[in-house]
Design a protein around this nucleic acid. Structure first.
Lengths: 209, 209
DNA sequence: TACAAAGTTGCATCGTCTGCAAGTTTGGGC
DNA sequence: GCCCAAACTTGCAGACGATGCAACTTTGTA
């Protein structure tokens, strides 16, 4: 049997804990919710909580132990001779598609990350590992050294920063166009060397109608 | 009296605490040192520690309450019509010059930040405010909206990322050239649109002699 | 010298997180 | 069906971080 009762129960508990943590944190703020409350809402003991998540913050942002990066996986499936920036954009896009599924939680989570910098920090530290992995793959493709050369780390840092900025801007906009488009636009600006005169299109008119 | 005994004592205690925290964390790791140990090394009670720093991590990374950004100050002194990327590079340079002073602590601190991502996260969250301030200034200069447009956040994110990557690469190199040069090189790569074919110069030959 | 403001300290307390030693449940061989 | 071993849950005890409160001490000043 590929999927025993055990596995399903575990997955369900994890989901319940993460979901409860997210919901409660959204309502009362991360500091306003205790592990005890989360465990109770999920129907397990406080001690069990720590069998699933290493910290309260991890549960809120929904990061399991081996959050094996979809981003890196996406990059690995791109052709090796593709320009790094293009490959990274494609990887981001592929992750985005997979994300549409649990869009509700994701929306709430990103809102929390913006409202509470401490949470974002926790998230970022997990993200640093991903960044490292991506940089190594880029270094391999460009035959550079991931430690000594700046290019691999630079491309990855710029790409992820662009993604982050794009998501934030997209969330701030009322109209809500396509997130993929906003991200693509940001990458175009990177490719244009961040030269204001050569930037393809700017999102909004200065201000007002 | 502009500088009473009170002020001097406070400053000294703060320095002693931060210094002890840094030194102990470097030796035993951030988790391996307790607030009690730091306080004892600095000759104050554990309770007093929290009159100076909001958390253990803050003491280690040496962040006081009002870490008013030199970076933003550096940016504000640049001409308003300077291209954003150039202005940011200049701002980074100006901060770097001021940093030479306490170079010893700074070196150790950056090493710690690299070894312990959790610390880096704490640092980054403080840094987020700085990033926000820089983006707002860039938005003002470019007559864009800091929330709705991606450009301001994008430039700042890319610039700070480039700085971070450059510092890391510089630390990894044995020969230790000029840090300013490495940073400048990274900014050049940004200005070249991260196009591998147009990147000015690459730091190292592929690998080996 | 006396007094007020500022700073330090101990104490009590809450919450996070970990190790350990039970119990309880599940899956699989027989 | 029965039983065992592995996996999972739970309670308990305890270390540590962090905060509020109420003395107590030091510093600056009248």
């Amino acid at each position: 049997m590929a999927e025993g009762l055990r596995e399903r129960k575990k997955a369900e508990t994890r989901r319940a804990l993460s979901s409860a943590a997210l919901r409660l944190a959204d309502r009362h703020g991360p500091e306003g919710v205790t592990v005890e409350a989360i465990a109770e809402a999920a129907g397990v003991s406080p001690r069990t909580f720590f069998n699933y998540f290493a910290s309260k913050d991890d549960a809120i942002v929904g990061l399991g132990p081996a959050h094996s990066s979809n981003l890196l996986h996406g990059l690995l499936t791109r052709p090796a001779d593709e320009p790094p920036l293009d490959a990274l954009l494609a990887a981001v896009h592929s992750v985005l598609d997979g994300l549409e599924a649990s869009a509700g939680d994701w929306r709430v989570r990103h809102g929390l990350l913006q409202r509470y910098p401490a949470l974002a920090a926790r998230y970022a530290s997990r993200f640093a590992e991903v960044e490292r992995g991506l940089a190594e793959e880029i270094a391999r493709r460009t035959r550079l050294d991931p430690d000594l050369d700046t290019y691999p780390g630079l491309v990855v840092s710029a790409a992820l920063g662009a993604t982050r900025v794009a998501i934030t801007a997209w969330q701030a906009r009322e109209d809500r166009g396509d997130l993929g488009d906003v991200i693509e636009e940001a990458f175009d600006q990177l490719a244009a060397g961040l030269d204001l005169d050569r930037v393809p299109t700017l999102a909004s008119a200065p201000t007002g109608p």
